[in-house]
Design a binder for these strands. Structure first.
Length: 472
RNA sequence: GGCGCGGUACCCAAGUGGCUAAGGGAGAGGUCUGCAAAACCUCGAUUCGUCGGUUCGAAUCCGACCCGCGCCUCCA
């Protein structure tokens, strides 16, 4: 069964096959670690994760590399403006290194909460300065660069099909109108090495053949990916904003430096998450972090469910309303799985095979998770399957969905003493048919954050997820 | 201005030429329950932004128009 993926490079859905045997070499553009990652950023990493899990599900081996940008990402793609790491360091009175470490750690914790599998290798731009300089030297030797007073630039006119992926028509670019292109020859040219204006002021600067300075943003991905994945590899991903600037620039310089074409076979891009009808930019602020959602009583995996419910290439209109819907669905899913219990019977029925195939077809069709979820719900509704069989299938599907079905456990025993005491008291009241008292205790427990459900096996205590009633 | 995406029920969202237009959430009714909760059952679009066209047949293809959004500044 083949995996079909939409390739931004060809703008078509193509059959995926690795270049080398069974190994998929996969690079994803990571965050610039100068601030918190909001749920919009995180959506992209959920997308990376389902791609990776789908490949693993299909029996491929995956080598996944991701970077942290911790230098040189300027506040403008016109190659002007401040270095965002430097700016954040100044603002928070910390070293750039500390800023990077601090926000990287938070990002990693958020990924764990979202069940995002960690990359095999994480690399930081500042640890590959030497290699970046070497790459610029290669480009210089091959005649792809020119020098201005503030740095070394890549000459995009030397590349025949520059910007193919972004369908860039240089005449049509508005950049020249809105942004000073400085001494660049063309709007599309980009910095490979920026010289420090006054050496000694920046926290992060290095010596180079051209003078003290720092690397341009686009070089790091080429250098780090080739170091760990080779000079040609299978998949490169990122957010949809990279289709027009960052990735065309990477392609141009990598193909120029390495002499390979295509440098990367498949380019996949995740669509943005929108809030209140528009995209949320960090500069405007105002989009939630995972921690903030947790404070509102939402489980992080509810957000993952929400991401899965929309195809990755389609923009997702986020609201607390919609998140609550996802939280309810996930809750129900968890309840069902808990009810089914373990103990799998091993005989495979016909319908189990049918559902497995349907699921695989869905995920292999350009990661169609909404359809995959639909298959899951069909399984849970099927009258001909018993509990353990349903649970079995659900757990299998969850290898890709990552909704935490495997480690579900009743959460009850860790309730505080006084809560347990109230539950006991309530049971006594119920036995005495003192239902008024029993109901009063139930209300009391609810205020303490616990709900009690009476079942044939006695009362079940549940931590109450304070769910927001509708806002937005 | 250049490039691109989308408009499917109260909400989110699959489906891109042909069986009854997936699925989830919310809602309504019912079973169970001392009452709840959970679970289960039943009911929700003769219709897919609008208007034309192609076709035996279109939500799906073509054209025009209306609306919303993204990238080309920051950002995933």
């Amino acid at each position: 069964m083949a995996v079909f993926l939409y390739n931004s490079l060809t703008r078509k859905k193509e059959t995926f096959e690795p270049l080398k045997n069974n190994l998929v070499r996969f690079y994803s553009c990571g965050p610039t670690v100068y601030s918190y990652q909001h749920i919009g950023n995180l959506r992209t990493y959920v997308f990376n994760d389902i791609l990776k899990r789908t490949l693993l599900f299909n029996g491929y081996e995956v080598k996944h590399v991701m970077n942290y940008t911790d230098v040189g990402h300027l506040s403008s793609d016109a190659d002007t403006g401040e270095d965002r790491m430097e700016k954040a360091a100044q603002k928070e009175h910390k070293s750039a290194q500390d800023i990077a470490a601090f926000y990287a750690e938070i990002f990693e914790k958020d990924c764990v909460k979202l069940n995002i599998m960690p990359p095999d290798i994480i690399c930081r731009a500042t640890q590959y300065i030497k290699e970046q300089i070497e790459m610029v030297q290669v480009l210089e030797e091959k005649g792809f660069t020119y020098r201005t007073s503030d740095g070394i630039y890549f000459d995009t006119s030397k590349v025949e099909d520059y910007g193919q992926m972004g369908q860039i028509d240089e005449e049509g670019l508005e950049a020249g109108k809105r942004v000073d292109i400085g001494e660049k020859k063309r709007k599309t040219d980009f910095a490979l090495w920026k010289l420090s204006e006054k050496p000694g002021l920046r926290q992060q600067e290095w010596n180079s053949p051209w003078g003290i300075g720092f690397p341009g943003w686009h070089t790091e991905c080429c250098v780090m990916s080739s170091k760990h994945l080779g000079k040609q590899f299978d998949i490169h991903t990122g957010g949809e904003d990279h289709i027009t600037v960052h990735h065309p620039n990477e392609i141009a310089q990598a193909e120029a430096a390495f002499g390979v074409k295509p440098w990367v076979r498949f380019w996949l891009h995740g669509a943005f998450l929108l809030f209140k009808g528009e995209k949320v930019s960090k500069s405007k602020g105002g989009l939630y972090t995972i921690s903030e959602l947790e404070e509102m009583g939402f489980a992080p995996l509810a957000f993952r469910y929400l991401c899965l419910n929309t195809h990755y290439k389609k923009q997702l209109h986020f609201s607390l309303n919609v998140l609550e819907g996802a939280a309810n669905a996930l809750n129900r899913l968890h309840n069902l799985i808990l009810e089914y219990g373990a103990d799998p019977g091993d005989q495979k029925t016909k319908s189990e095979k049918k559902y497995s195939n349907e699921f695989r077809d869905a995920i292999n069709d350009d990661l169609n998770m909404p359809r995959a979820l639909s298959v899951l719900w069909s399984v849970l509704r099927d009258k001909d399957l018993d509990g353990p069989a349903k649970r079995n299938l659900a757990l299998k599907f969850d290898q890709v969905l990552g909704l935490g079905l495997e480690n579900l456990q009743e959460k009850k025993q860790d309730a505080p003493e006084d809560v347990l005491k109230l539950v006991e008291e309530r049971e006594k009241a119920r036995k005495d048919k003192n239902f008024a008292r029993a109901d009063a205790i139930r209300d009391e427990l609810l205020k303490l954050g616990y709900s009690v459900n009476d079942t044939s096996q006695g009362p079940k205590l549940k931590m109450q997820n304070s769910k927001l009633k509708t806002q937005n």
